[in-house]
């Protein structure tokens, strides 16, 4: 599913766009966690097709995505980012979005629309 479609389903807004082509990219897997160690330990899917969904608005969620070669992050519960984190996301080439949905609802919407876990 394209990122554009995923963001429509989640009614998500953009916080930082580093790659103008990212909306047309297809994604298949979701890593949904607030524990960065879990993401680092468990994500096995193709990073090009994986999105990190988290409620952890911190430089370390961006760093974790960077280490996993993931460059799309969606924050849940309407969280936004600081100017420092925005600059860091730009530096990393990260694309960051926010949805007002809770983690539970976000995962439910994505799962029911065919997105799979990143723990394969």
């Amino acid at each position: 599913m394209t990122l554009k479609k995923i963001l429509e389903l989640l009614k998500a807004d953009s916080l930082c766009i580093s790659d103008s082509q990212c909306m047309e990219r297809n994604f298949e897997h979701i890593s949904a966690t607030d524990l960065m160690s879990d993401a680092l330990a468990l994500v096995q899917s193709d990073s090009e097709k994986t999105i990190l969904v988290t409620g952890l608005v911190h430089a370390q969620s961006l760093r974790t995505a960077e280490m996993l070669d993931i460059n799309v992050v969606i924050y849940v519960r309407g969280k936004t980012m600081s100017e420092t984190d925005y600059n860091l996301a730009k530096e990393m080439g990260m694309n960051v979005f926010t949805t007002k949905s809770s983690m539970y609802d976000t995962c439910g919407i994505l799962y029911s629309n065919g997105l799979l876990t990143a723990v394969v």
Partner: peptide
């Protein structure tokens, strides 16, 4: 734990 670490996965994950 506030920034997402401290879950006790670090060293096992490094070794793996």
């Amino acid at each position: 734990r506030e920034f997402g670490f401290g879950a006790g996965m670090g060293l096992p994950n490094i070794k793996r």
